[in-house]
């Protein structure tokens, strides 16, 4: 099965100059943990994830300790998030892996598993966002 048959034709996305608090609001309202980032032409230029935002808000020594259980409360994280709130998405987005409309399901599943992605954007021949494929989209197809 090809990406065009698997994808959700949902173009919910943000732009690089969208503010972080707006992106978080959109994630909450739309129930998404990953948002594609597109430029003015609608071309995919990155992704911003809930996971990346959480990590950016955590103290730098978190990477060494691998736990936040040592924190007395979430005040420090909240302070950091409030500092991030009015910064643009471009400061925190990362390069997006994507698939093309005619890519096969095996290739897409491989990317999702290997790269530990919750979803992957689908782009057309010009690199414009045309949909997304979530892990659950593949799972639900396979179980039928």
């Amino acid at each position: 099965m090809k990406a065009r048959e698997l994808m959700r034709r949902d173009l919910t996305s943000v732009e690089p100059d969208t503010l972080i608090h707006e992106a978080i609001y959109l994630m909450e309202q739309a129930g998404l943990s990953t948002l594609p980032v597109v430029d003015e032409e609608g071309k995919l230029v990155g992704v911003i994830t809930e996971h990346d935002l959480i990590h950016a808000a955590l103290p730098e020594y978190f990477e060494m300790l691998h736990s936040i259980s040592f924190l007395p409360n979430l005040n420090q994280v909240q302070k950091r998030l409030r500092e991030m709130a009015f910064k643009p998405v471009s400061d925190y987005m990362k390069e997006a892996l994507s698939v093309r409309l005619d890519d096969e399901d095996l290739h897409i599943a491989d990317l999702l598993i290997r790269k530990r992605l919750k979803q992957i954007p689908v782009v057309d021949e010009e690199g414009k966002l045309v949909g997304v494929i979530r892990r659950i989209d593949i799972l639900s197809r396979l179980v039928r």
Binding site: R9, D10, L11, T12, Q29
Partner: peptide
């Protein structure tokens, strides 16, 4: 099969 591009609001 409709492509959706909506703005989410409260």
């Amino acid at each position: 099969g409709v492509t959706a591009n909506f703005v989410w609001i409260e």
